[in-house]
């Protein structure tokens, strides 16, 4: 494992911890999109189908369990927890899951490396992950006051994607492996979705202002 991959995974882990910290400690999920969190839960559930049948390393299995566990517990908190669910901006979080899930599923049926159940689900999870942040970005744009933890959560998620691209460039030159168009293109699309957010994040950071996205 190279340094970019490790840094990417740790950034991903940090983003989840920041979100859990906000929800568990402050008992608030204000500004967090339940739609995005449900999509992530679906992404991990469909990607890690082989978690108990295909062993790679203890690190790999442990991280998969963490991402599965955290995504489902965040959804649980936002839907079921007595106090947390009261802070959910239901009226603002209106993005329709199906508009993302259905096209990704159809695309995975058509464009995949092998037409098997596991492979199609794995490809579906890549396409869905690429766009899963959209409801969250829409919600951020609607929220006038983005709190620090929510801003950091999205920033860390975007950082994780950027580091994964560096990881692929590194792997491309150091390992004998063929071109992974599906992974790379969906990963690139996903990272580009953060470009606008990054611009305003750095802008507010540089000027020491509160993060606000233009309407």
């Amino acid at each position: 494992m190279n340094i970019f991959r490790l840094a990417g995974d740790m950034t991903h882990l940090a983003s989840v911890l920041v979100l859990l910290l906000k929800i568990h400690t402050i008992k608030s999920c204000a500004g967090v999109s339940l739609k995005t969190q449900e999509l992530y839960a679906l992404v991990f559930a469909t990607r890690y189908l082989d978690i108990f049948t295909h062993f790679i390393s203890i690190y790999n299995t442990l991280m998969k369990l963490i991402f599965l566990g955290s995504s489902f517990s965040i959804v649980w908190y936002m839907r079921r927890h007595k106090i947390v669910r009261r802070s959910y901006d239901k009226e603002q979080d209106t993005f329709r899951h199906l508009f993302l899930i259905l096209p990704c599923f159809l695309l995975a049926l058509v464009i995949n490396e092998r037409f098997t159940f596991k492979e199609v689900m794995w490809t579906f999870s890549l396409y869905l992950e690429a766009v899963a942040i959209l409801p969250q970005l829409v919600l951020l744009q609607r929220t006038r006051n983005i709190d620090n933890l929510t801003g950091q959560y999205v920033f860390l998620l975007g950082g994780y994607r950027a580091l994964y691209i560096l990881n692929w460039i590194y792997r491309y030159f150091t390992e004998q492996h063929f071109v992974h168009w599906i992974t790379w293109i969906s990963g690139l699309v996903q990272t580009l979705l953060y470009a606008d957010f990054f611009y305003y994040y750095f802008h507010s950071w540089k000027n020491n202002e509160k993060l606000q996205l233009p309407a």
């Binding site: 991959r5 995974d9 991903h12 295909h54 790679i56 390393s57 790999n60 991280m63 998969k64 991402f67 490396e113 092998r114 794995w122 994964y164 990881n167 692929w168 792997r171 390992e175 492996h177 063929f178 992974h180 992974t183």
Partner: peptide, 10 residues
């Protein structure tokens, strides 16, 4: 069949 190496990623 050859498995893609990116399957070891998260």
């Amino acid at each position: 069949s050859q498995e893609s190496t990116t399957k070891d990623e998260l």
